[in-house]
Design a binder for these strands. Structure first.
Lengths: 209, 209
DNA sequence: GCCTCCCTGTCCCGTTCGGAACACCTACGC
DNA sequence: GCGTAGGTGTTCCGAACGGGACAGGGAGGC
């Protein structure tokens, strides 16, 4: 139960450091040569960590990448989910793209050809899940179905489409070197999303998400 | 005999990593808040290393700083000393200032008010030593007096003055945000040095060092 | 085919490290 | 004065790590 993402009790400084070093090394190397061209030995070499320590903390390089990506997605979704009471939907979308903007090198690598397609797949799933929760607001009296993890395979068509849309908006923005400021791409994405939602609702108009 | 700078046999990866992390943390924190305002706890915190590991590797923060500086000075002197056969004196001076240029943030911090005056003192001593060895070229038949470490307190007046001059040239250049390219500051410093050497030799002219 | 080379994932033993306690010191408040 | 707070440097034990070995598995040469 010491695999990251399960136990988490206030880990030892040593294991936190080891994992941080491995994460940083992986991201660095991905920028240089792409994810699937990397070996575990290269990652541990760059991180100044032994191979045995790597396998003590992660199953393989996919597991390591997954942890990095999951943390990033949690932070990303946090920009939209946090402060739902104090901020307007528009402000939350801007915060979303500002987060992407801040770590654009990171997301750029993960979503580019260097990052293996399953990063985009994972992001699409996470965003679809988020959209689903926003489209179906917590009806009072209904217990929260999702216990923090996994929304299940019960996504609706509109949510799935919107998840893909947002993922592609981010990918497009990053692949074109962010040709417009976060505010603008946020507004444009929100407008497109609004159109999809309106169409899904049978013509009724809505812009928030 | 495991204090850095003594044993050196191809150290354990763990101790190399620990020392690297501590070094990087110290330089980083010096840039932020100056050397004498730092505690060992802050350094180890930033480095993600325990305090006990710090004391296992260094006597105190001065010892750590000394190691960093000594390594930097060795690299710096290497730019002048290496390839003495293939490069002209002018080229070597340019290499000297290009090295400073490359790590200007590092030297800038160490030589600024944030870095405690004894960094400049140490640099002056190292450069004086180097100048001394260049002014007094290895006369054939004479055994090398210096066994790699310490030139002793036998520095001549011209060497001492030149050491201070070069140190101040570097400090001036960095404190004024490198207002001219390395080539120019190298040429100007070399010209000034030439004048001093000429004066020391009683009017005879010489520009190399 | 076979052989070489490299990477993977697992194991063990000796070493280094993290955590926490400890006494000691200095500075500050009062 | 006395007490508190925070930094220093040392010591100890259990835990994580590094190094090296190991079997197994492709990929490529010939």
């Amino acid at each position: 139960m010491s695999q990251p993402g399960t136990g988490r009790v206030t880990e030892n400084l040593r294991v936190r450091r080891t994992r941080k070093l491995l994460r940083d090394a992986l991201v660095e190397l991905m920028e240089e040569r792409g994810f699937d061209r990397l070996t575990v030995g290269e990652i541990t070499g760059r991180a100044m960590v032994s191979r045995s320590a790597f396998y003590r903390n992660y199953h393989d390089k996919f597991h390591l990448a997954e942890q990095i990506f999951d943390d990033a997605m949690a932070a990303l979704l946090g920009t939209v989910t946090d402060d739902t009471a104090t901020r307007s939907p528009a402000e939350r979308w801007v915060a979303f793209f500002e987060h992407i903007d801040r770590y654009h090198r990171f997301y750029g690598v993960l979503l580019s050809r260097k990052g293996s397609p399953w990063f985009a797949t994972k992001m699409r799933a996470a965003l679809t899940d988020m959209v689903e929760r926003h489209l179906r607001p917590p009806a009072e009296g209904r217990a929260p179905a999702d216990d923090g993890v996994r929304g299940g395979a019960s996504e609706s068509l509109p949510a799935t489409v919107l998840g893909a849309m947002f993922t592609q908006s981010v990918t497009w923005w990053l692949e074109h070197d962010r040709p417009c400021p976060p505010e603008e791409i946020a507004a444009r994405s929100a407008r497109l999303a609004g159109a999809v939602i309106a169409a899904a609702n049978g013509g009724a108009e809505s812009a928030g998400a």
